[in-house]
Design a protein around this nucleic acid. Structure first.
Length: 586
RNA sequence: GGCGGCGUAGCUCAGUGGUAGAGCACACGACUCAUAAUCGUGUUGUCGCUGGUUCGAUCCCAGCCGCCGCCA
């Protein structure tokens, strides 16, 4: 039920990081941090939020990487899952359930979805020619095959296209084809696959997408552009690593698995179901997936738009009875010191590496204010240090510190105010207006604008202190200084609430410095969950949804502890140190 | 080859059919409570190029140049 006082349920679906290795800050910039800011804000305004994701662990790349390391795909996925879970925990991403695609629960849900679509006639079989490695018996994806281009004679054309002449190719046509893995010549065999009948949904998708006026324009137009060319899409592969096809005669086959893209998007649903089962309320997921007022927000990088605006909605339409996405918030790409992230060239900074030297809120601040929200943006160490020192520490951290130090030293408590002046009231009104201004931006997933407004208000409070000069005034008019500091503390308290979605760690510390004893920024925990005999890691927690998105009522007289700095200023030398590290990896 | 994006002050980026903004950098001033942080004032631009639509375009359209991405 929806009403003005109780917001509708909010489902926050976050793209599933691929477990082929540790993730870098570009990955979390695109979906992790924005999604968490959004989820935390929604909880603060009292909405019931369910935020789900997990590691995406099937697919050919993982089997190859595992082979290279000499372990099984499962072991390989286990390792990376553990690393990624720890990264996300340290970043404070408040998932309700961050799981993985190798759970029994996920297999079951994927197979149910498959069967439902199959029974409705949206899935059919078709025979095609596929490349197979003779020695391993494994299928080779087109881009893992190279050979001489039949059109221009370029000797290193890939199976899907020739980098020299740009023509699209079929691997069967390559002259002297060879595997990029081990150089051997692939065999081409007939193979039968299942296809999902996407064209059957083209009209419904068009009608639906055209109605989504609130989407980011590029997401909407990009998606509409895809529709005229929709073709049936393969949803199985010749592979032994993945979800088995749940049909008689297929289920037992060791060489046929559901294609990773199909199983991964279903993870949103399976993770929601896992969350509900684990907490002993197996039907609770329906509140976010079937209630008419529930809204699903999907966060991802722009490379994933197709899956979230076309493929997944088509699956949902085919299954029926499940809500389509309300918004698909796609971010652009982050680059690193002027070029794409490149693991092989050392142009990369992994999340865990970053967090071993810098605070999570410093990274969250940077990724929100300078991240790829609407256009590609570049991460540079110089800009990271600059924004940390000038903005996070200088404007906001310093406002908190100067205010609390003065209050603590002179009064030991929130000072008792006298009558507020016109100037006092003007500042209070402006800062309190931030709840609707910042909130309005956050409701529309406009994160840069939201944090920019909060920071602008912080500057206004600094300006107010510069004018009122309580440190000077206190010598002749202690009562007036008390009022000024009282006003400033209430503003700081307001800004703390507004900044909590962005900076949960430091705002929780500030919350306590202001004498509160409860938790405003709960953090996720890692725990083991039993799953039909196996166990897997889950990142999550029970977060309260309690309305706190409202002006400060902090009472005068409340004792204040001695304040401590919220943030660390960075030595500009770290820029060169980090650049040296990067060069050393190259 | 098809599709799409981007090109705005030294730098990073906003933005709007009516001749353009923020932060940083830079200069000067104020203050000294505060992690030498803060506050104020000021300077900076043929809004990629060429045409078109319009009374008027940086914002609409076409072509071009440059950078980038996606798809096949």
């Amino acid at each position: 039920m929806s009403s003005a006082t109780e917001p509708d349920p909010i489902l926050v679906c976050v793209a599933w990081p691929y477990a082929s290795g540790p993730r870098h800050i570009g990955h979390v910039a695109g979906f992790g941090v924005p999604a968490d800011v959004f989820a935390r804000y929604q909880r603060l305004r009292g909405a019931r939020v369910l935020m789900v994701s997990g590691t995406d662990e099937h697919g050919t790349p993982i089997t190859y990487e595992a082979d290279r390391v000499g372990i099984s795909p499962r072991e390989f996925a286990d390792r990376n899952n553990a690393i990624i879970v720890e990264d996300l925990r340290q970043l404070g991403l408040s998932y309700d359930c961050f799981t993985r695609t190798t759970t029994r629960n996920h297999y079951r849900v994927v197979q149910e979805v498959f069967l439902r679509l199959y029974e409705k006639g949206y899935i059919f079989t078709r025979t095609q020619l596929g490349a197979v490695s003779p020695s391993t018996g494994r299928t080779l994806p087109d881009r893992y095959i190279e050979g001489t281009c039949p059109i221009c004679g370029y000797p290193e054309a890939r199976g899907d296209q020739c980098d020299n002449c740009g023509n699209q190719l079929d691997p069967v046509d390559l002259i002297e084809p060879r595997s990029r893995i081990d150089g051997e010549r692939p065999e081409f065999r007939e193979t039968e696959h299942f296809f999902f009948d996407l064209p059957a949904f083209a009209d419904r998708l068009r009608e639906w997408i055209e109605g989504q006026a609130h989407w980011r324009p590029n997401v909407r137009s990009y998606s509409l552009n895809l529709l005229p060319d929709l073709k049936p899409r393969a949803i199985t592969r010749d592979l032994d690593w993945g979800v088995p096809v749940p049909l008689p005669g297929w289920r037992e086959r060791p060489d046929k698995r559901i294609y990773v893209w199909f199983d991964a998007v279903i993870g949103y649903l399976s993770a929601s179901i896992e969350w509900a089962r684990t907490r002993g309320t197996p039907e609770a997921w329906r509140e976010w997936w079937q209630a008419p007022g529930a809204r699903g927000y999907y966060f991802m990088g722009k490379d994933n738009i197709t899956f979230h605006t076309v493929l997944w909605p088509a699956i949902l339409l085919g299954v029926g009875d499940l809500n389509l996405p309300f918004d698909v918030v796609a971010s652009e790409f982050l680059t690193m010191e002027g070029a794409r992230f490149s693991v092989s060239r050392g142009r990369v900074i992994e999340v865990r590496d970053f967090l071993s030297r810098y605070d999570p809120d410093a990274l969250r601040y940077y990724l929100t204010t300078a991240g790829p929200e609407t256009t590609d943006t570049d991460f540079t160490w110089a800009e990271f240090v600059r924004r940390n020192n000038d903005e996070l520490v200088g404007t906001w951290g310093n406002l908190v510190h100067r205010t609390l130090v003065q209050a603590h030293q002179n009064f030991g408590a929130v000072p008792e105010p006298g009558a507020l002046t016109e100037r006092d009231r003007r500042l209070r009104a402006e800062v309190e207006g931030g709840f609707s201004a910042v909130g309005g931006f956050l409701d529309r997933a406009r994160f840069k604008a939201a944090i920019g407004e909060a920071m602008r208000l912080a500057s206004l409070v600094n300006q107010y202190l510069a004018e009122e000069r309580p440190w000077h005034r206190i010598k002749e008019d202690r009562a007036r200084a008390a009022t000024t500091l009282f006003v400033a503390i209430r503003c700081v308290d307001d800004l703390k609430t507004m900044l909590t979605p962005f900076l949960p760690f430091s705002c929780q510390r500030l919350h306590e410095m202001l004498g509160y004893t409860d938790v405003i920024a709960p953090q996720p925990r890692v725990r083991e969950v039993e799953d039909d005999g196996g166990a897997h890691l889950v990142l999550g927690n029970d977060y309260e949804a309690r309305p706190r998105w409202a002006p400060s009522c902090i009472p005068a007289g409340r004792p204040l502890p001695r304040p401590a700095a919220l943030y660390r200023k960075l030595d500009p030398r770290v820029v060169d140190e980090e650049l040296d590290r990067m060069r050393a990896r190259a």
